[in-house]
Amino acid sequence: MTRLIFLVTSFLVTTLSAQTFNKDIEKGKLALTNYETVKAISIFENLSKQHTDNWLPNYYAAQTLITEAFINSQKSLIVKEKLTKAQIYLDKAHNLTSKNEEVIILQAKLYLAYVVSNSEVYGRQYSGIISKLYNDAYVLNPKNPRVVLGKAQWEIGAAKYFGSDTSTFCADLEKAVKLFDTFKQESSQHPNWGEEEAVLAVKNCK
């Protein structure tokens, strides 16, 4: 009887903990969507401390800091501060999940934030790495719309930089939009961003 009570209690505690985690992740994602980055980073940092074996809080903490870096792309000191901190969370996420295309493309975005902030300083340093990361992610999961979107956007940016035609990549953007309709997340807490960005990219692709 005592064992049964213990098992039931453990089950309830685990269930309630999972529900709380899910709600907090959703609160953080909503705050990030609304660019309430201070609120979002607070939620994800706390979750990272509480759930040390889960890569998602570290992923979202890094994503929030990378978003802040893009917002402040003209302020080099802020960019470096945010991305240095984001890398710490990304390293944790990398260590908690192997060969995860979501983490890999977020790493590519971190390097891209450096390039956007100062292409002369960081362009040569990170361009090859970014290309490799997107290629690695594509090999892992070519049906992930965020992978296809990010890879296409990077290739379009590179083509523009070298004065090449970008229209050949429009089909890749259209493919990304279609993949958002068919791609199934592992759970509602897993990354699901990018669809609106993909639709806008298709409209602007020439």
Rank of each mutant, 00 (worst) to 15 (best):
I5C: 00
I5S: 01
T9G: 13
S10C: 13
S10K: 13
L12K: 05
T15M: 08
T15W: 10
S17Y: 09
A18L: 14
T20N: 09
I25L: 06
K27S: 13
K27M: 12
G28N: 01
L30W: 02
T33G: 08
Y35W: 13
T37K: 03
A40S: 05
A40P: 02
I41P: 02
I41K: 05
Q50M: 06
D53F: 15
Y59C: 00
A61V: 12
Q63R: 09
N72T: 07
N72L: 03
S73F: 15
Q74I: 15
L77I: 15
V79R: 04
K82S: 01
T84V: 11
K85A: 06
A86N: 03
I88R: 11
I88V: 15
Y89N: 03
Y89Q: 01
N95Q: 10
A108H: 11
L112G: 12
S117R: 06
S119L: 13
V121W: 05
V121G: 01
G123K: 03
S131V: 09
L133W: 01
Y138E: 04
Y138W: 06
P145F: 06
Q153F: 10
W154R: 09
F162R: 02
T166P: 02
S167M: 08
E174T: 14
K178M: 04
F180R: 06
T182C: 02
S188G: 04
N192Q: 08
G194Y: 08
G194E: 02
A198R: 05
A198V: 03
L200F: 08
A201L: 11
